[in-house]
């Protein structure tokens, strides 16, 4: 089965708007999901530069889905959804 890829944007805009706190996920995810999920911090994903899009930052990508105004809880929920889908 393909691993789920989680990319946390640690570009300046996302970091300032809250992804600093999402670094927590880099510890939580491997502990919780072992090798089902791979998590990494990434430089600017290029989502913040469109018109005013900093208002929706921070961004996290879970596979190809973009999570905006991401929080630890929101990202975990998206991951859970994907895992359930994969198991079906």
């Amino acid at each position: 089965m393909e691993k789920i890829q989680v990319e946390i944007c640690l570009g300046t805009t996302c970091f300032v708007m809250g992804s600093s706190h999402l670094q927590e996920l880099i510890e939580i995810i491997p502990k919780r999901y072992n090798d089902k999920v791979e998590v990494s911090g990434k430089p600017c994903l290029g989502l913040c530069s469109q018109d005013c899009e900093y208002s929706q930052a921070p961004y996290v990508k879970v596979n190809d889905d973009v999570v905006s105004q991401a929080t630890v809880e929101k990202v975990l929920k998206v991951i859970e959804g994907k895992i359930r889908n994969n198991e079906k």
């Binding site: 640690l10 300046t12 300032v16």
Partner: peptide, 17 residues
Amino acid sequence: FEELGALFVACKIEILN
């Protein structure tokens, strides 16, 4: 720090670069 962060965002400065 919040204000400095806002300045980086407004001035579009990518610190990692």
